[in-house]
């Protein structure tokens, strides 16, 4: 299945890209996609995850066409 992966803020700088489309196994979780795309980099403990622009746990499974985003703690306002 196809999944869109987004990195935001400092994570986009760290990995040198903001968005990548990947082929992923059916039922893969957000953290498994992170490992696939980052070459097995450890996910910083404070990383936040959103699936289809809603906060989600890193162990949540993805479906075909999903957008999963990884980002650091937010600092707006």
């Amino acid at each position: 299945m196809r999944v869109k992966v987004k990195f935001l803020a400092s994570l986009a700088e760290r990995f040198g890209r903001r968005e990548v489309d990947v082929n992923a196994a059916a039922g893969v979780t957000a953290e498994q996609v992170w490992a696939q795309v980052t070459g097995g980099a450890a996910m910083p403990p404070n990383t936040l995850v959103a699936i289809n622009k809603e906060y989600a746990g890193r162990g949540k499974s993805l479906a075909d066409g999903d957008e999963v985003a990884f980002f650091p703690p937010v600092t707006g306002g």
Partner: peptide, 19 residues
């Protein structure tokens, strides 16, 4: 809300890590 601040200091730039 998913916003992030990056500060420009005299010594360089840094991401704000917490509010």
């Amino acid at each position: 809300a998913p916003f992030w601040k990056k500060e420009q200091l005299e010594a360089g730039v840094r991401w704000v890590e917490e509010n």
